[in-house]
Amino acid sequence: MSEIIPKQQNELAEMIKRYAENDGVHATAIPSLFFIRDSNASVPRHGVYKPSFCLVVQGAKEVWLGQERFKYNPADYLIASVNLPVTAQVTEASPDVPYLGFKLEFTANQILEVLRDSEMRVGPKENAKRGMFVSRLELPLVDAVIRLARLLDNPKDIPILAPLFTKEILYRVLQGQHGARLEQVAIEGSSARQIKDVIEHITNNYDKSFRIEELAEKVNMSVSSLHRHFKEVTAMSPIQFQKELRLQEARRLLLTESADATEVAFRVGYESPSQFSREYSRMFGFPPRQDIMRLKA
């Protein structure tokens, strides 16, 4: 961990081990802060990243967005600036040295608040950039992260200090190498902000069909501009984005409820069970029934 002294790394690792004794994703007493633990390198896992700041404290991880791979380890941090369906995989972990992760979710309004309160010079509106990036971790940012995590040992301080330390973390990211990408998502009228609004609409209505012309009109963009900027931010088209959301929700429903594949297909918005089965197999490698039996086993 080139930028962090071992003492800081060890303190954060020990804290995560204490609050995440078992493998899995663990919510903490600090709103929007999660600790992750994995004792083994994992198979690829599908999910939706909300806007979040992610650290690997121990081990290594890679995240696929469309066909693009983002690798990061304890020397880096990863930012998802909008909701993004991804495939993530822990690549370095063992029972003796488990993978340990730190994830802090945030909103565009929190970014705006930092920009406003810090009087940071906001750059001009730019064309939208990829909604995910990896940057090198620097000491001032690590200090803010550790101060936030320490609050878990002093719960009475959380309501007052957690928002301040979260704001500092976002401030440090905005000052970093790719800070302008995060800034653009919050700026009213920027193409990144318009695409964020389209993403939120699709996310909230993933089970309903849409016309691309209506989405473009909703955010005051041309159809061609919407397509171009959406693909730049998400690495996929609006239709592909919706399909990933539908299939991930379908898999969740099949795992947690006793519904059959046809019922689930209709619930997530498919009109053809055979098309659902075909696209499910393409994404997860197995037909629905076989995939769920395999996962439960």
Rank of each mutant, 00 (worst) to 15 (best):
residue 5 I to D: 11
residue 5 I to A: 15
residue 7 K to M: 10
residue 8 Q to L: 10
residue 9 Q to N: 10
residue 9 Q to F: 01
residue 10 N to H: 09
residue 11 E to Y: 08
residue 16 I to E: 04
residue 16 I to L: 05
residue 17 K to G: 00
residue 24 G to I: 10
residue 27 A to D: 13
residue 27 A to V: 06
residue 28 T to I: 13
residue 28 T to C: 01
residue 31 P to K: 08
residue 37 R to E: 01
residue 44 P to R: 10
residue 45 R to S: 14
residue 46 H to G: 13
residue 49 Y to N: 14
residue 58 Q to Y: 02
residue 60 A to G: 10
residue 64 W to P: 09
residue 70 F to A: 08
residue 71 K to A: 13
residue 77 Y to N: 03
residue 79 I to A: 05
residue 80 A to V: 00
residue 82 V to D: 02
residue 84 L to P: 10
residue 86 V to L: 02
residue 87 T to R: 04
residue 88 A to M: 05
residue 88 A to E: 07
residue 92 E to H: 09
residue 93 A to G: 03
residue 94 S to P: 08
residue 97 V to G: 00
residue 98 P to S: 02
residue 99 Y to A: 06
residue 100 L to P: 08
residue 102 F to G: 03
residue 103 K to A: 14
residue 104 L to F: 13
residue 107 T to R: 07
residue 110 Q to W: 01
residue 110 Q to K: 07
residue 111 I to V: 15
residue 111 I to T: 00
residue 112 L to G: 09
residue 112 L to F: 01
residue 115 L to E: 07
residue 117 D to Q: 11
residue 118 S to A: 10
residue 119 E to G: 12
residue 119 E to W: 15
residue 120 M to C: 06
residue 120 M to W: 00
residue 121 R to S: 11
residue 123 G to V: 03
residue 129 K to F: 05
residue 129 K to I: 11
residue 132 M to K: 05
residue 139 L to M: 14
residue 140 P to G: 09
residue 142 V to D: 04
residue 142 V to G: 00
residue 144 A to E: 08
residue 144 A to V: 01
residue 144 A to P: 00
residue 147 R to H: 12
residue 147 R to P: 02
residue 156 K to E: 15
residue 160 I to R: 12
residue 161 L to K: 01
residue 163 P to D: 15
residue 167 K to L: 04
residue 168 E to Q: 12
residue 168 E to Y: 03
residue 170 L to N: 14
residue 171 Y to N: 00
residue 172 R to F: 10
residue 174 L to Y: 06
residue 182 L to G: 08
residue 191 S to V: 09
residue 193 R to S: 12
residue 196 K to M: 09
residue 202 I to T: 07
residue 202 I to A: 09
residue 204 N to L: 01
residue 211 R to C: 14
residue 213 E to P: 00
residue 213 E to L: 07
residue 213 E to S: 12
residue 216 A to Y: 07
residue 218 K to P: 02
residue 218 K to M: 15
residue 223 V to F: 06
residue 225 S to A: 10
residue 227 H to Q: 12
residue 228 R to M: 13
residue 230 F to H: 03
residue 232 E to G: 11
residue 235 A to Q: 11
residue 236 M to W: 00
residue 238 P to A: 02
residue 239 I to M: 08
residue 239 I to K: 07
residue 247 L to A: 04
residue 248 Q to W: 00
residue 249 E to C: 11
residue 250 A to H: 03
residue 256 T to R: 06
residue 260 D to R: 04
residue 261 A to L: 04
residue 261 A to S: 12
residue 263 E to T: 08
residue 265 A to C: 12
residue 271 E to T: 05
residue 274 S to L: 14
residue 275 Q to T: 02
residue 275 Q to E: 02
residue 276 F to K: 03
residue 277 S to W: 08
residue 279 E to M: 11
residue 279 E to I: 03
residue 289 R to W: 01
residue 291 D to P: 00
residue 291 D to I: 08
residue 293 M to I: 09
residue 296 K to W: 13
residue 297 A to T: 14
